[in-house]
């Protein structure tokens, strides 16, 4: 039996009175590409923040390679994080640094590698995401899709065992989005890596996923393969599958806040 690389147990999160995650459980296995699907505002980014230790859940546990991430000390957390790459929805590149320096930064900060080796590694990673020759560009000089690729190169800088991606294709035009999905597919083949993607976009799911979980009202109402999902008779799954892209996709809280908030 293969042990899961990530175990989520009875995880609860609430903001004030609002319960976002209501006791979720999940096992993710080594080398699978796992997609967590759900509408905007259902708690996907919140869950990812728990998974990388940026935010403590209200209750419950996360084990990454048998280390309990929720109770880990800062030092233990940092050791776990060295094996984790994260592609943030916003790309989160440092705008004052070149693309190359952005990719090199984690290596300079966390490894004993000399500059000459880091330079080669940086170029290898940029080549992998199709950005050869862009190392001296500033992020502001890149298109949205290229920024995503650069951020992906940075997430891969340390050869992580686990890669988390938050809405990798959100906000990109459809052709560029397909390019990012294909890139994730290529990475999946190239590296022995566990990839966890959260998204509200159904189209990419069927391209990249080995298994899928549908997060709905704080719970996983479906976990299974693509085929199992297509055959599922769970009403919410059917609804999700039949929904036109992005139809009705809004975070109600955010929308309301945008109207009444300060």
């Amino acid at each position: 039996m293969v042990e899961p690389i990530i175990k989520i147990r009875d995880l609860h999160t609430q903001y004030g009175d609002k319960k976002v995650l209501k006791g979720i459980n999940l096992d993710i296995y080594p080398y699978e590409t796992f997609v967590i699907l759900g509408r905007s505002g259902c708690g996907k980014s919140t869950l990812l923040r728990h998974l990388i230790g940026l935010q403590k859940p209200t209750q419950g546990y996360i084990y990454i390679k048998d280390n309990n991430f929720v109770t880990a000390s800062e030092k233990e957390k940092n050791d776990i994080l060295k094996n984790i790459g994260m592609l943030f929805q916003s790309s989160a590149l440092f705008n004052s640094m070149t693309v190359g320096d952005n990719v090199a930064l984690p290596l300079r900060e966390h490894t004993p590698q000399p500059d000459s080796t880091i330079k080669i590694m940086t170029r290898m990673k940029l080549g992998l995401v199709g950005l050869s020759g862009f190392e001296n560009f500033m992020p502001a000089e890149l298109s949205g899709g290229m920024k995503k690729r650069a951020a992906l190169a940075r997430a891969l800088a340390m050869d992580p065992e686990i890669l988390f991606c938050d809405e990798p294709s959100a906000g990109l035009d459809p052709i560029v989005a397909v390019g990012i999905d294909n890139l994730i597919l290529k990475l999946k083949k190239a590296f022995k890596m566990t990839i966890v993607v959260v998204t509200h976009e159904l189209e990419s799911v069927f391209v990249i996923a080995d298994r899928i979980a549908l997060l709905h009202e704080g719970e996983f109402i479906f976990v299974g393969t693509k085929d199992e999902m297509r055959r599922s008779e769970v009403p919410v799954v059917r609804q999700f599958l039949q929904r036109a892209p992005d139809e009705d996709d809004m975070d109600k809280d955010k929308f309301l806040n945008s109207l009444i908030g300060g």
Binding site: L107, T111, Q113, S116, T117, I118, I120, M121, M124, K125, D159
Partner: peptide, 9 residues
């Protein structure tokens, strides 16, 4: 990739 980069050097 650090091993590979090292060999390239």
């Amino acid at each position: 990739s650090s091993g590979v980069a090292t060999l390239i050097e």
